[in-house]
Design a protein around this nucleic acid. Sequence first.
DNA 1: ACTGAAACAGCATGGAA
DNA 2: TTCCATGCTGTTTCAGT
Lengths: 151, 151
Amino acid sequence: MDIIDRKIISLLAQDARRSLSDIGGAVELSASAVNERIRRLTTSGAIRRTTVDADPQALDLPILAFVWIALAPGADEAAFRSYAAAHPSIAECHHVTGPWSYLMKIHVGSLAGIEAFLADMKEHGFLVRSETIIALSSVVDGPFILKEGMV
Amino acid sequence: MDIIDRKIISLLAQDARRSLSDIGGAVELSASAVNERIRRLTTSGAIRRTTVDADPQALDLPILAFVWIALAPGADEAAFRSYAAAHPSIAECHHVTGPWSYLMKIHVGSLAGIEAFLADMKEHGFLVRSETIIALSSVVDGPFILKEGMV
DNA sequence: ACTGAAACAGCATGGAA
DNA sequence: TTCCATGCTGTTTCAGT
């Protein structure tokens, strides 16, 4: 993982469909040398996958919210993990420092969607307390990767 | 934007390098029909870009943190926006409801990197108060898209 | 809007340096 | 690890439905 590998990842991050010779021109390497580096970066896990960043609006998911979670005492953590992993609305879920246990990033279609989301979590017995923060606008927007179950 | 378009985006989200005929097989369409749909989705902005999801660890950015920001009263909001957009560590920055003005998601190399980050924000006169939450582990990890200035 | 075929570009591979 | 040469897969375009 040298400076050229970083440059290649950066170029691919901007546009993963750039040709190998294009990238080669930018880093002063032949196309096949670039190909070999990308192959190594992929097998080593430095590049996890090539994907598409979609517009949540176009997919009718205009609401972005962050939800703080206090897990119910004695809640099944393993069950919670697989629940979160499979849930189509949960873009991210992190175990965090501070007064709350988890921070989630969710995409939903409407404010009613947030209520339904929290109700579902409660029904599953995970939730005791939560706090929801809604993003009004984004100065720097993160990528939106459509989850499998979300179709 | 019908169900087939969603399916195509979902398939590309899993692996943007799947061939058009592969995708065509999954949605029962010819390769060129799929190509035409992807072209439309891209020009309409529903697909923003094809990109690579990298491993922050491999790029020496193992620390993920969320930073709440109270903007200094009378701070230049436009300047703050371009500062945030250009800053290599800031993966996301949202204007949010609740007691804080902004929520940022940042990737840094070490805890010292957080301190340096906050000091820089303060020097620029944006920050009055902030609170930092560190992600200990991720139940559902978001994608990491290397920013241009980060190389 | 979709199909199928033909033309083209880009990728993958192997051998040499 | 890199380059070059080449066979081949996948993309793009276009005429037809």
